[in-house]
Amino acid sequence: MPETASATPVLPSSLSASLPALSAQAERLVELGVHEIAGLSAEELRTFASAEAAKAPAGGEGALLAVHPDRAPASALAPLLRRSGKPGFVVVDMPDVDLFAPLDTVALPDAPLYLLTGLDRGDRMANWSPDEALPALTAEARTPLLLTEGIHWVLQQPDILERNHCFMTIGSRLRKANGALDTRTPAVWISNGTGRDGRERRDAPKIGWCWAGNRHTWLGFASATGRRGQGS
């Protein structure tokens, strides 16, 4: 890992405490039509959020409501992102974005809806590579976010995505036919409107990728303390 980075675990970013209440998050997803993408009713979303808020400490404050990626893939969620009035998009050289699946070490609740707790944007790991960050997160008993979870976070808390403080979602990886992991690792950042993005997309939320062995000073590694589904 980089010599300038500390391996000492730190508390999740206080930004996670600024998430809307679970009921408001459910309404936001309904407003965006995510329930329809997922094949759920608006009432199912609202009921889940209400039940989880009722049984969680402090009403589930700081928890993120997420839809299982099998129900709402990244390609369907990305255009719902907004920044500077511009919709989010997936880079053109990532047509297989929905084939990026959870790592074997990432356990998802067997339910269409679930919560993530203890979110952290991972700023302290800026200038680490994904290959360096993953074992460090594992050692701290933290779980890396999936790409769809990262999108959900930005949908609910747009200011989590800042220039020079964007994040990778290395819980999602593409596995090749031979079983090896593709070396691309997904991330959520802000377009500069250069190259194939097009000038019209400058400042738009961008779903892209970086090589697993490369470091970027402006990308942290989003993670959580855990996930829980209905009844867990």
Rank of each mutant, 00 (worst) to 15 (best):
P2D: 15
P2C: 10
E3N: 12
E3T: 10
T4R: 14
S6W: 04
V10Y: 11
V10S: 15
L11Y: 11
L11K: 12
P12H: 03
P12M: 00
S14R: 15
S16F: 12
S18P: 07
P20C: 08
S23R: 13
A26F: 03
E27Y: 07
L29W: 11
L29R: 12
L29M: 14
V30Y: 03
E36T: 11
A38W: 08
A42K: 09
E43H: 10
E43T: 11
L45D: 04
S50Y: 07
E52C: 04
A54L: 08
K55S: 15
G59V: 06
G62I: 03
A63L: 10
A63I: 06
L64H: 01
D70Y: 09
L77G: 06
A78N: 06
L81Q: 03
R82Y: 06
R83Y: 06
S84P: 06
G85V: 10
K86E: 02
P87R: 11
P87V: 07
G88E: 01
F89W: 09
F89Y: 12
V91P: 05
V92G: 14
P95D: 08
D96L: 09
D96G: 02
F100P: 03
L103C: 07
D104T: 10
V106L: 10
L113I: 03
Y114N: 00
L116Y: 10
T117C: 12
T117W: 13
G118M: 08
R121I: 13
G122F: 02
D123Q: 14
M125K: 01
M125R: 08
W128G: 07
S129E: 00
D131F: 01
A133S: 09
A133N: 01
L134H: 09
A136F: 02
A139T: 01
P144N: 00
L146T: 02
E149R: 03
G150T: 00
I151N: 08
H152V: 02
L155S: 02
L155I: 09
Q156D: 04
Q156G: 07
Q157I: 09
Q157P: 05
P158Y: 00
E162S: 12
R163E: 14
N164H: 15
N164K: 14
H165E: 11
H165W: 11
C166P: 05
G171H: 01
L174F: 13
K176I: 07
G179V: 05
D182S: 03
D182V: 00
T183W: 10
P186T: 05
P186N: 05
V188L: 15
V188I: 15
W189N: 15
I190H: 04
I190W: 06
S191F: 07
S191L: 04
G195A: 08
G195F: 08
R196H: 10
R199D: 13
R201P: 04
R201D: 01
P205W: 06
P205N: 08
G213R: 10
G213N: 09
N214T: 15
H216C: 11
T217P: 10
G220V: 04
F221Q: 01
A222E: 04
R227A: 15
R228E: 12
G231T: 01
S232V: 13
